[in-house]
Design a binder for these strands. Structure first.
Lengths: 138, 138
DNA sequence: ATAGCTGCAAATGCTTTGCAAGGCC
DNA sequence: GGCCTTGCAAAGCATTTGCAGCTAT
């Protein structure tokens, strides 16, 4: 999944968002190649490193706008940080407790077999599985 | 699982913690009857309501001490709040997105069947499944 | 032109910390 | 007495908000 500037522009337009300088730069970092899992802070650092001037507030704005548009998915793994995943298809995660890194579990490698009876009057919104791992002998 | 004051005192002593007034009161609220899922704020409110003077800092101290002692388990479901579960045996959860309520999934009603290949050099720390539900038609 | 974006700084909300006073053994 | 606990207020952090100025269309 390799996207060029044109593709990114389209992707943003289809989400009814304006292709501003900052937004394009963030989209580039997020979607240009393969799947990514980022925190707001990390993305901010990357943007700065890439010579793009973006404020942290704008990072948050855009991450949430992308999420609303279905271009990103928010993953809750750590109560102190928010992670955003560029892979929006249903799948689960490994979370490295040591490094704070998030990694996809290939779709075919994990599935939830029995679906429990739901509480009265509710419907499933999503099923999230997080396999927390640590370095061996730590 | 009905515990009286003596049982609670023992439980606390076994965790190498002192049975102070606040700690006993919190243990009472948490462990006296059945399983519970609480946030620090909720527990604080309950304590106040029960006429027990406890500061929020002490609530956090004790929740973490109980957690370290294996009497509680922290569950990450919402990036803005921490939940503590009095059920420390392995099990999964329903999370009501509307109410912020956490509920156990009976052990036999959900299991993860295929275990994925772990990343190199890591070992499983825990497997957390959260079934997020919303009220029907919301 | 105008509706949407952006940056900054201030505000927020949950959680943690520092430290003096108090309580358990 | 000594050490663990507590409470308060202040600090910390990630995230959000208000608002004036900027920018796509």
């Amino acid at each position: 999944m390799q996207l060029n500037s044109e593709d990114l522009r389209d992707k943003i337009k289809m989400a009814n968002l304006r292709p501003t300088r900052q937004r394009l730069a963030l989209a580039e970092l997020l979607f240009a190649e393969g799947n990514r899992h980022v925190t707001a802070e990390r993305l901010h650092n990357e943007a700065m490193g890439a010579g793009v001037t973006v404020s942290l507030a704008t990072i948050y704005n855009n991450l949430h706008q992308f999420t609303s548009a279905g271009l990103l998915r928010e993953v809750v793994v750590d109560s102190s940080r928010s992670y955003f995943d560029t892979n929006v298809s249903p799948h689960h995660h490994f979370f490295h407790e040591n490094t704070g890194e998030l990694e996809d579990i290939p779709r075919n490698e994990l599935s939830v077999d029995t679906i429990p009876d739901l509480p009265e009057g509710t419907e499933i919104c999503s099923v999230d599985v997080i396999v927390r791992v640590t370095d061996r002998r730590s």
